[in-house]
Design a protein around this nucleic acid. Structure first.
Lengths: 251, 251
DNA sequence: GGGCATCAAACTGCATGCAATTGCAGCGCT
DNA sequence: AGCGCTGCAATTGCATGCAGTTTGATGCCC
């Protein structure tokens, strides 16, 4: 086989990042739900790479908080607790306020057009599945972050936005995305006008309302919740021998 | 509070995290300066593991932004540009304001004592090297973040704080840490009093002044700068064959 | 039937081996 | 001397193999 010169998009198109991108997208579109198992073998087979690479990719995703890794156990898609979800949204609010503060009044016409085009796309996808709507809405925020030209900010906003998507899978009800779209439009317009204070406020309330709509209640969830409840006790396990929790399963 | 945070996301005891911790600390104490090479072999040998593990650890550190990985090239300690450094501080300010906002008036006596003890330690280390002072100062901020009991916040504050340490290596002059210590004390006292607005303001100015003291000038640096200048053009290289830039060097 | 020991299959943890790429020293040319 | 070229050592990219751990299915005993 001739050496395939790895011609692909901007950054690093090695196999690891291909896998990461694929999994991120699967997670964001809820094709992979929280708790879904991700065995290294299957991943490797699916993507035509060895376990070594699949494992490395899982490590990267774990560093982003999308995947949970426990020693000697199959990797799973992360299942944030309700509190973690709330924390993620709080952080996200601050970061995205920073984004729009930097952007207010500094966008080129082309950039504004790009943002509008994206929201149009969101609009167009309104008939489709929730999964696509959520992905597009998330990508709008990432697009904004990218316009700051601050790689660090892009990274953090992306990460925390993905995490928030995760929590949507867990705690959200079938929700209406229309208002989100209108809020996106309002943000663009305030950005164009350069009204810094207003756009920060808009972003704040936008994300806050998304969070409130998504994180419906701190009420105990279904069976999955057991894992969260038990998490704090995980220390006892730490050594290597599981305690076996005799017959907790009642409920 | 015996309730250890027990960082659920980051694995705690395998060889990878041992290496990561060691390297992070070496970087934070400027034993490893930006640009320092980190060959997988040497790392593996030094830590008594195979290249596979060393490589994985480097991947984790790269995900944190402490290490730069380029295909087929030796990993190096990250050398953030001046702008990236400034961005990191901006993000840090927002995150740490969030930390102290959540903490204001909510700290237990034991926690306040712990914070004071830490600042005492900083004080005690004033005669030592800059490296130790910087590490202790950074750990103060991380300690604060840990008290929020929000693993996500801890992770982001830690990461961005480490990054800021990196920039100190690059752009800082031999600086005086005394005032920082006083500012730490002021923050503790405002936290104890529960004055949310004031503590947020204190934190803001504290970090801002650290940044301003550290990031002395946007003035072009030495040779290293060439890399930064060329960075935007790196896309042309993307494929795999470098363009070789014939004799751009004029001027 | 329900609980418990046992064991094989599945899976992870890690090292090693081989091919491909890079970087650099040395050489020749102008 | 300066500049480009060539070939070898250093280094990374990735797959595979083996050992140890977890999982869950089976059979046994009550």
């Amino acid at each position: 086989m001739a050496a395939r010169p790895t011609s692909k998009t901007s950054e690093s198109s090695d196999k690891v990042s291909v896998i990461c991108r694929a999994l991120r997208r699967a997670i964001i579109e809820q094709a992979l739900e929280p708790g879904a198992k991700l065995p290294e073998d299957s991943l490797g087979e699916r993507f035509g790479v060895s376990r070594t690479i699949a494992r490395y990719a899982l490590g990267q995703l774990a560093a982003e908080g999308l995947v949970e890794l426990r020693r000697n156990r199959i990797a799973v898609v992360a299942t944030p607790s309700w509190q973690e979800a709330r924390d993620a949204f709080d952080i996200r609010i601050e970061l995205e306020r920073l984004v729009v503060r930097q952007l207010a009044g500094k966008l080129t016409k082309a950039q504004i057009a790009e943002l509008n085009a994206h929201v149009d796309a969101e609009d167009g996808a309104r008939g489709g599945t929730d999964a696509v709507s959520i992905r597009l809405a998330t990508e709008f925020h990432i697009l904004l972050a990218q316009m700051t030209n601050s790689p660090i900010l892009v990274r953090y906003v992306s990460e925390v936005a993905y995490r928030c998507c995760l929590t949507l899978s867990l705690y959200s009800r079938p929700h209406s995305t229309e208002c989100a779209i209108n809020e996106h439009r309002a943000i663009i317009s305030a950005l164009a006008k350069g009204d810094e204070a207003k756009v920060m406020d808009l972003m704040h309330h936008h994300l806050d309302s998304v969070a409130n709509r998504a994180l419906v209640a701190p009420t105990p969830q279904r069976g999955r919740d057991l894992l969260d409840i038990l998490a704090p006790y995980a220390d006892d396990i730490a050594g290597n021998r599981v305690v076996k929790l005799p017959k907790v399963a009642r409920r």
